[in-house]
């Protein structure tokens, strides 16, 4: 088989219009980026930017350790404790408030399309609503402080939790529900005996996942006055006390890392079905 002649090379299967399409997409992308860059003033950087950067790093590497604990209060530890408290309490509230939404949004439990659709819409509206704006509204109601943060997180988390849980319910094995129906159980009994036990592991896992997000959220809600470590952080930034900014940043990093670690471990156990 010593065939020396070069066989006819097939040309790549790219018809004319596909190539045109590729070029068009590319042109659109380039245009979008040109437009995006035109909006950001790269030239107007503060003259002092470099100095401040150095100062920030200096502060990060020489944190104000005294701030960690102050006898008279308003220190880092108490700020972090409050941040965690806001996240935990807020998450707990949302975990309970989510239940009706999750059930109403599940298409396998609710036959009336209009009803489940309305719930899905409400959930996506809540998800879209920025938490900071919600915090501002709650501050108007209960005044500035941690409670406003709790309410914000409690309501704002419903959007995501409701969506995740209703999707999880839609994926459940409906066999047990059928069995319960065949036993003469009514709607509520069916949900309680066949859906709830199956849904609990993912329900808890989502709650933990949301707790991780909410700790981060609670850390910044203070910037608009809704309690937690955000308020002293904003003061430190405005007052250019970089060593204090440094210690607060470290505090947030440590808190978030610990919560992520614990929550991740618990979630892994839930997935394995040990709990």
């Amino acid at each position: 088989m010593n065939n020396k002649t070069i066989p006819h090379m097939p040309s790549p299967p790219k018809p004319f219009y596909t190539r045109i399409k590729t070029w068009l997409v590319l042109a659109v992308v380039i245009a979008i980026y040109a437009w995006a860059f035109s909006g950001i003033p790269f030239t107007g950087i503060k003259q002092t930017a470099w100095q401040i950067t150095k100062a920030v790093f200096n502060g990060l590497f020489h944190p104000d350790w005294n701030y960690v604990y102050l006898a008279e209060g308003e220190d880092l530890l108490r700020g972090l404790a409050e941040t965690f408290a806001i996240a935990l309490f807020g998450t707990t509230i949302s975990v309970f408030l989510t239940i009706p939404f999750a059930i109403w949004a599940s298409r396998n439990l609710i036959r009336t399309r209009l009803f489940s659709g309305a719930s899905t819409f409400t959930l996506s509206l809540i998800r879209t609503f920025p938490d900071i704006i919600m915090a501002i509204i709650f501050i108007k109601a209960v005044g500035p402080g941690a409670f406003a943060g709790v309410l914000t997180i409690g309501i704002n988390s419903i959007g995501m939790l409701g969506k995740l849980n209703s999707e999880a319910i839609e994926d459940l094995d409906m066999g047990p529900s059928e069995a319960l129906k065949a036993c003469g159980a009514n709607r509520l009994q069916t949900i309680w005996y066949a859906i709830v036990p199956q849904a609990i592991p993912s329900y808890l896992s989502f709650a933990l996942f949301r707790l991780e997000i909410n700790v981060r959220s609670a850390a910044i809600l203070g910037m608009v006055g809704a309690g937690g470590i955000g308020t002293p952080l904003l003061f430190a930034l405005e007052g250019r006390t970089w060593s204090r900014v440094g210690v607060i940043l470290l505090g947030i990093i440590v808190l978030v890392t610990i919560i992520d670690w614990i929550s991740g471990k618990l979630r892994r156990r839930l997935v394995q079905g040990k709990a």
Partner: peptide
């Protein structure tokens, strides 16, 4: 009425349909 009639009829399924975590 339907539920009362159903509770008098047991049903066994191919896939058992037990709640596995209970």
């Amino acid at each position: 009425q339907l539920r009362v009639m159903r509770r008098g009829i047991g049903m066994i399924f191919q896939s058992f349909n037990l709640v596995k975590r209970s």
